[in-house]
Simulated assay, not measured.
Amino acid sequence: MNKTISILGCGWLGLPLAISLTKKGYNLKGSNTTDRNSKIFKNHNIKPYIVNIGTYNDITDFLTANVLIIAITNKNSTDFNRLIANIEKSTIENVIFISSTSVYPNTNDVVTETNPTQNTPLAEIENLFRTNTNFNTTIVRFAGLFGYNRKPGNFIKPDKQIENPEGFINLIHQDDCINIIEKIITTNCWNETLNACADSHPKRKEFYTKEVLKLRNEKPKVNENSLNEYKIVSNEKLKKLLQYEFKVNNLMNCND
């Protein structure tokens, strides 16, 4: 297995993903906008690059790979049009674009990949990749990210209230994010749009009260007058297509 994978954006998700992929025998190239992770990269046989798609620099060598995973927060369509033009001239055959379930509006109902999205920059960027026929793209819409140093209890700051307390949670653990991306690569699951979140959807008040108590030993305040708008993100397509079973599934029993 000599497939080369480039990861654009080696932060909270991209860096542990890169390390995991190297352990499975892939050749890895990783980027940040600075050299802050270069020592970690070298320790794990990841070739380091400094890439900022908002400024022009030659990324030909970085894009000399089979698969490109895009895990950055930039939402500027001009920057992505420039990136796509570079991908078209490269050896990249397949792209995994990390998106978010935030593209869906709150419907107070279950949403699937067939639901309409909001008119947002992220949805627009998704479409730039989806309609490009020069390479294959799978779009993964991750729910709220948590795990390890990203504690859900910290999502509710001490001076803030829990909004929409009767609404429902959509979250996914870092381990499942990594496992799902690896499964997409190993099964050649391309040209798909997939929702990725845990099966369980506890109510916000119940879940965040539990998580805040774990960190601060105090109950958070609750805005009982908020509108309780929500969506419940379905992961059924992903589980069926990838034959995937979530590692961290029951959010009320999660100890991370």
Rank of each mutant, 00 (worst) to 15 (best):
M1F: 04
I5W: 01
I7F: 04
L15F: 12
P16E: 09
A18S: 03
T22F: 00
F41I: 03
H44G: 01
H44E: 01
N45G: 05
N52K: 03
I53R: 02
G54T: 11
Y56G: 11
D58K: 12
F62W: 06
L63E: 07
L63R: 00
N66A: 05
N74S: 12
R82T: 14
S90I: 06
I92G: 13
E93V: 01
E113P: 05
E113N: 04
T117G: 04
Q118E: 14
Q118R: 14
E124W: 02
N127Q: 14
L128D: 00
R130W: 11
T131V: 06
T133R: 15
N134Q: 15
T137D: 13
T137Y: 04
F142N: 04
F142K: 05
F142P: 11
G144T: 00
N149T: 12
F155L: 00
K157R: 13
D159T: 12
F168R: 10
L171V: 06
I172V: 01
I178L: 08
I180V: 15
I180K: 11
K183M: 07
T187S: 08
W190A: 01
W190T: 01
N191L: 10
N195I: 08
D199K: 02
V212E: 05
L213T: 07
L215E: 11
L215G: 09
K219H: 07
N235F: 05
Y244E: 11
Y244Q: 11
E245W: 10
K247N: 13
N250H: 13
N250D: 15
M252W: 04
N255K: 15
